[in-house]
């Protein structure tokens, strides 16, 4: 067995085990941390396939941003863990259905790509360049549409949750900077005993 094979099985085992941990962990925070571990070992698998750009992006985006937000939310929520576990059994059949559908889809895809894998005719030595060229030439329109959809979702989320509160003091940097001595300070001479 080659060294690369050993590393592959190591990463693959960790990925599968941590994926099981995501579902099985008693504490939601542990679940998210298992998810992070699954992301990381998947990134390792990507590197083994020579897709180091995808690996870096996976770590940066999913581990560096998405999972951190998950953690934020899960840590702040006040959830009754035992309640959550009792209820989760009810969703078991549904979970099996979703899993079966995904497995069937994967099988169909594999049947149509026998042993070929996803190649796109990319040169493995510099796949950052190759992905850039593919995204900005062949797939320019889908790429731009996807980014626009994300932008709309982003602005939509802010617009839906943002509300102006009347009694909150807001800091406006430009008005603060525009203040001068004349309109901020007033000097008065107050005679002794007459000041209020």
């Amino acid at each position: 067995m080659m060294v690369a094979d050993v590393i592959f099985y190591l990463f693959a085992t960790v990925t599968v085990l941590s994926a099981l941990g995501v579902v099985g962990a008693r504490n939601p925070v542990h679940s998210v941390l298992f998810l992070v571990l699954a992301f990381f070992s998947t990134a390792g698998l990507f590197v083994l396939m020579g897709a180091e750009f995808l690996a870096a992006i996976l770590v940066m985006v999913y581990m560096g941003a998405v999972a951190i937000l998950f953690l934020f939310v899960v840590m702040m929520l006040d959830v009754d863990f035992s309640m959550l576990r009792r209820e989760s059994v009810r969703y078991l059949p549904m979970g099996f259905v979703v899993g079966a559908v995904m497995l069937a889809e994967l099988g169909l895809m594999m049947a149509h790509h026998p042993g070929e894998g996803l190649h796109l005719g990319l040169d493995n030595t510099d796949n950052t360049l190759a992905i850039g060229q593919a995204l900005y030439t062949r797939f320019l329109y889908p790429f731009e549409v996807a980014s626009l959809i994300l932008l709309v979702a982003l602005i939509g989320a802010v617009a839906l949750t943002h509300r102006e509160r009347k009694r909150v003091h807001r800091q406006d940097i430009s008005t603060q900077l525009a203040r001068t001595k004349e309109d901020a300070v007033e000097l008065r001479k107050v005679a002794s005993g007459e000041g209020a």
Binding site: V36, E52, I57, M60, L71
Partner: peptide
């Protein structure tokens, strides 16, 4: 000498936050 050195550093440095968030929790 990997050909994605800068990306690698950015990716790894984004992991530093985990130690801190986990320690707090």
């Amino acid at each position: 000498d990997v050909n994605v050195g800068i990306l690698y550093i950015l990716a790894i440095s984004s992991l530093g936050a985990y130690g801190i968030i986990i320690s707090g929790w």
